[in-house]
């Protein structure tokens, strides 16, 4: 699959895909999207990169190891649920910052949870695909 056209296209598309994945993650609470969809989009970007070039370069693009991403995501998701304990609420109760941000986006533990989902999906799927691509 070492086609130059494919590689050039990929180079152009990957940043777009990644940006789009973040957009999907953030808007997910109000429009179709969310952590699962955003994570899958990001994986698609890295999978494309790994196919066009090789797994090593895709890993370099990722920066951290997929295992770290997965673990961080799980910790983030659990921690965002545990934060409710500190506020004296049951596990996983959503907490919100009172200050409303533009574009309907509100900061709260729920968003952290969604980011955790995003990281787990990205980490786990990237781990599978990159490991397979190397092998």
């Amino acid at each position: 699959m070492k086609s130059l056209v494919f590689q050039a296209t990929t180079r152009a598309v990957t940043p777009l895909l990644l940006a789009f994945s973040l957009f999907m993650l953030l808007r997910g609470h109000n429009e179709p999207g969310g952590g699962f969809i955003g994570g899958l989009l990001a994986v698609a970007a890295f999978a494309l990169y790994a196919l066009a070039f090789d797994a090593r370069r895709a890993r370099a693009l990722l920066g951290v190891s997929p295992q770290t991403l997965t673990a961080t995501g799980l910790l983030l998701a659990t921690g965002s649920g545990g934060a409710a304990w500190l506020a004296g609420q049951p596990f996983m109760a959503g907490l919100w910052l009172s200050a409303a941000l533009p574009a309907e986006l509100k900061l709260g533990t729920v968003l952290l949870f969604d980011v955790g989902v995003y990281l787990v999906v990205l980490g786990a799927a990237a781990l599978v695909l990159l490991t397979l691509r190397e092998g």
């Binding site: 699962f36 999906v121 799927a125 599978v128």
Partner: peptide, 17 residues
């Protein structure tokens, strides 16, 4: 179903390997 789709993929990956 949304989570089921993602989990199916993870399980399929494991089965494939």
């Amino acid at each position: 179903i949304l989570t089921a789709i993602v989990i199916s993929f993870a399980v399929l990956a494991f089965a494939a390997v």
